[in-house]
Simulated scan of single mutants.
Amino acid sequence: MKWLTLAAALVGPAQAALRFGCSTVSIQRLDPLVQPGITPSSHVHQIVGGDRFNASMNGDIGEEGRCTTCTFSEDFSNYWTATLYFKHTNGSYKRVPIMQNAALPNGINGGMTIYYTQQDFNTNGNQKITAFPKGFRMTVGAPTVNNLDQAKKNVGLRFVCLADKNTRFPETPDFPTKACKGGIMTVHHFPSCWNGKDLDSPDHQSHMYATTKEAFQAAGPCPASHPVRMPQLAYETLYDTTQFNNMWPTNGANPYVLSYGDAKGYGTHADYVFGWKGDSLQKAMDNSCMFNACEGGKPLKSQGVAAMNACQVKSAVKEDIDGWLPKLPGM
């Protein structure tokens, strides 16, 4: 009996691993974390998730949200990244459209693939995972990063040159150096160790600590300063660059630029505001399901693609972000 008790303790609880799609809820110049209350913000973002996204993001968005673009209908969180533009040799810019991941249901309007994993891509893990609390927010990466050495140190912030939508390697810390047959994917892994007290910090990062390893590998243990293990949150965004492949500059220079003017990709970054309804995320983290097996009320409520695509947030900024532009919006 003692042996059985010890074995149970060693195995520990089985936690869920979530992978799901969120269609685009808005593309506009708002940034309620880094530039709260400012309309417009300095550069364009692509946002997915709940319809409470706005310039300030106050209140409990999990309870106040009316719709969400995510598969799980209890997830009113917002997830966003800088958009990608193609720079023509004549100096004009065109926004690169977003496409859905191959692992997701057909028909999703652009969007992202969102992950909440506990150990790695292939297993649930066996340690207690604490869901993000109400009011929690964070960022990863920084647009001020301007050199390759620092970009390499930002483990988990990477680009993939796609042969097709199933391509996952190699991951690079900067933009591809050639035209990619299937498009470009950006990957953003957030830190998963929390200090256990602060919902945010002045730089939106210090309350968290990253033990992240590359490509969905199991993260290292949390330090004493940030002892609480939370879900490993990650985004994948696929950009359909194929329409620009025949416009690649003859001198071989990279023609892509992130919406804040980064032509290398070193400063790639992402933002997160928690907005799961009630204790739904914790219920999922305490469950043993993986990926789409967590849908349909087992344990999370889910919705179809039509409902995801129908949820939209109107732009608070009246400007053209999609035509051939003489300069990047806000620049």
Score class of each variant (00 low, 15 high):
F132E: 11
A142V: 00
P105K: 03
A142P: 04
F216E: 15
T237W: 06
G183N: 06
F190G: 04
N147L: 10
P133H: 00
V96M: 00
T167V: 07
Y116R: 06
S225G: 13
Q118H: 13
M99Q: 02
N146W: 14
N101G: 00
M112A: 13
S206V: 09
A234N: 10
T117N: 10
I184S: 06
K197Y: 02
H188V: 02
T123N: 09
Q150E: 04
L162S: 08
W194Y: 05
G125Y: 09
N195M: 07
V155L: 12
D120L: 03
D198I: 02
T186V: 11
T123L: 08
L162P: 08
S192V: 00
N106H: 07
H204G: 08
T211P: 13
H226C: 05
N124Q: 14
Y115H: 13
K181A: 15
L104H: 00
P143G: 00
Y235F: 15
N124W: 11
R229L: 12
G141R: 06
R229Y: 13
Q205K: 14
N195I: 07
T211H: 13
T113E: 02
V160G: 04
M230G: 04
I184A: 03
P105E: 03
Q232V: 09
N147I: 12
Y116I: 01
E171F: 05
M99L: 01
M138I: 07
T144R: 11
L148C: 01
G91K: 08
E236Y: 03
P97S: 00
G135D: 09
K178L: 14
S192R: 03
T167R: 01
A224C: 05
R95A: 01
N109C: 07
D164V: 06
F216Y: 14
T113C: 01
A215Y: 15
H207F: 11
A218C: 06
D203P: 03
M185T: 06
M112T: 14
F136N: 05
A215N: 13
N195L: 08
A210C: 07
F216P: 09
H189K: 07
F190M: 08
A224F: 09
N124S: 15
C180V: 06
H204A: 10
H204N: 15
A179W: 01
F136Y: 07
G141F: 04
Q217A: 14
L162N: 10
D120Q: 05
A179P: 02
N106G: 12
G125K: 09
T139W: 03
T117D: 13
Y93R: 01
N101C: 01
H204S: 08
W194N: 09
E171M: 10
Y116K: 03
P105M: 02
L233Q: 05
Q150K: 03
F216R: 12
L104M: 00
Q119I: 09
N124F: 08
S225I: 10
G196C: 05
P176C: 10
K197D: 02
S206G: 08
V160Q: 07
A102H: 00
P223M: 09
A179C: 05
H226P: 04
N109R: 13
P223L: 10
F121T: 04
A163I: 15
P105Q: 05
F216M: 14
D200S: 15
R229C: 07
